[in-house]
Design a protein around this nucleic acid. Structure first.
Length: 492
RNA sequence: GGCCCUAUCGUCUAGCGGUUAGGACGCCAGGUUUUCAUCCUGGAAAUCGGAGUUCGAUUCUCCGUAGGGUCACCA
């Protein structure tokens, strides 16, 4: 029986391959490992598995770190940890080659590893045969009788002495097992001198004292192979924690980069709060066992437990994410809200040269002032009912371009929208430019969206958010009341 | 094809032999809000199929079915 160990200090890791951006599945895997480590006051390691030199993407490591940082997932030891402070020297696999070779040498000395004499073409032929005969391909059926000395130019394979049924325990799935037909002489070190994932992750996890391996369920099938390596190295395996897959919306396949999965960081530019995305991902594949749905990161750390992890796969419920985003948005203080808006606006402002960030900042006080000093309309509100009033100044009916058979009520949404925008504009902005910019947009958006400050200001999934809208609606929750009041003024 | 995993409302899920099968998102209806966000109330909506174990199965076992994973010098 593998996979059971006595209690000790928890060490988890997230070990991505720097081959591109992270999708939400990766973020969730990292999150669970992070939550578990923090929950138990343990250590969370970010390890970079860059042993595939072909698929390596420059900058990917930095992008992964950026994504995790955004999500609020911090690591104790990572690729950015100075060597002097890193107990393992480096957590980047390409910088740890001598360690893998050292372990490989042990296996060679024990007679448990040998060089693979075949060419790729020969191997391919073997596979073809197996496929034709409808049986799984097993390298060990072709294992050479005698072994050459490994000179490092050929792949090094594990010699599985006695292939047998393997059983192990998974913290989520329970007792698992698979027959000897999945155990094979897998490659430990590739011809280029780099270790395979299969070998490197085991050496690393052992050397770094990892106690729990969180990973998605595609690794269940290869766990028996891993177990033969643990056995050959005489290493007691960590605990296995298998996470359920995140499925594509059509439920046909597991989510993956090649299936249109998006960069998780896109959620940020689309106006989602990291807190909402984290909350959402935590709850797909895990549940606290209570009815609580909205969690802060601290609450997740406090509540997280392995026995709440699901077995079955889950599809992402985008509408629920939207809802969570709203909930988290409403928890923000005005300062936090403003900081959030500023955090993602600049990218969009850059698309409109005349609206530099400085200009945007300069506008804010002006908008605020207009709103708070619109006293002449305040008299119309019942006392104390509204904190703010809004002055629908400069409203020029010709700007609205009424359709002939359109009633005033129907036009109201546009009316409100324009009023908001116009009120926010400085006097020196050219009226025609404003009109050209606003009108198509006002036509497009629904009234509900116009009046839903959080949504309008922060969405932008299909169209870009324009700075006018952001300015006009910066007041968040108060904006709604202001607009309601203003619209009433307009009706009279 | 072999091996492995999974299966409760449309979606995320609770349930760990006896429940009117609970919650959330979304949806529908009504009420607040000087229509539309928020908020409140109510509603429709699920145990994949078949055997077996048991006094009793959503729950345990087996067989189907469906979906997913895996069988790389990718991770």
């Amino acid at each position: 029986m593998f996979g059971r160990k006595s209690p000790e200090k928890v060490v988890t890791r997230f070990a991505p391959s720097p081959t591109g951006f992270m999708h939400v599945g990766g973020v969730r895997t990292a999150l669970f490992a992070y939550l578990f480590a923090r929950k138990h006051k343990g250590t969370f390691i970010l390890r970079i598995e860059d042993t595939d030199r072909e698929r390596l993407v420059p900058g990917a490591t930095e992008h992964i770190m950026k994504t995790l940082h955004w999500a609020g997932i911090s690591w104790d030891i990572g690729p950015d940890t100075p060597a002097a402070e890193n107990p393992f020297g480096s957590v980047i696999q390409s910088e740890r080659l001598s360690i893998y070779h050292e372990y490989a040498q042990k296996l060679i000395e024990k007679g448990l590893a040998y060089p693979d004499p075949y060419t790729q073409a020969e191997l391919e032929a073997f596979r073809e045969d197996a496929k034709r005969e409808h049986r799984p391909f097993l390298y060990r059926d072709h294992r050479p009788k005698t072994f050459e000395t490994w000179d490092g130019t050929k792949p090094l394979r594990l010699k599985v002495e006695n292939p047998r049924r393997m059983e192990w325990y998974d913290e989520v799935r329970g007792e698992l097992e698979a027959g000897p037909e999945v155990v094979d002489d897998i490659i430990l070190i590739k011809a280029d001198g780099f270790p395979t994932y299969n070998f490197a992750h085991i050496v690393d996890d052992h050397q770094m004292g990892v106690t729990h391996i969180m990973r998605a369920d595609e690794f269940i099938a290869s766990t028996p192979k891993f177990l033969t390596i643990y056995e050959a190295l005489d290493i007691v395996p960590p605990k296995f924690v298998t996470l359920p897959p995140i499925l594509r919306a059509d439920r046909k396949k597991k989510m993956g980069k090649r299936d249109g999965a998006q960069d998780a960081l896109d959620y940020r530019s689309e106006g989602y709060l990291a807190a909402a995305v984290v909350n959402f991902l935590a709850l797909t594949g895990w549940n606290p066992g209570t009815d609580q749905e909205i969690f802060t990161m601290d609450e997740l750390i406090e509540t997280f437990a392995l026995d709440g992890i699901q077995s079955g796969g889950a599809m992402l419920n985008e509408e629920k994410l939207e809802w969570m985003n709203r909930e988290h948005m409403l928890k923000l203080s005005p300062q936090e809200y403003r900081a959030f808006v500023h955090a993602f606006i600049p990218e969009r402002l850059l698309k409109l040269p005349q609206w530099s960030e400085e200009r945007f900042d300069a506008l804010l006080p002006s908008v605020r002032e207009r709103i708070s000093t619109a006293g002449e309309f305040r008299d119309h509100a019942e006392e104390g009912e509204y904190d703010y009033c809004f002055a629908p100044i400069i409203l020029d009916p010709t700007l609205l371009k009424w359709k002939k058979d359109e009633s005033a009520i129907d036009a109201l949404p546009r009316l409100r929208y324009c009023a908001e925008i116009l009120a926010a504009l400085p006097e020196n902005v050219d009226r025609e430019t404003v009109e050209a910019t606003i009108m198509p947009y006002a036509e497009e958006v629904g009234r509900g969206e116009v009046l839903w400050p959080l949504r309008v200001a922060l969405s932008g999934r299909e169209r870009s958010v324009d700075p006018f809208t952001l300015i006009a609606l910066l007041g968040t929750a108060e904006a709604y009341k202001r607009v309601l009041y203003a619209s009433d003024m307009l009706r009279k």
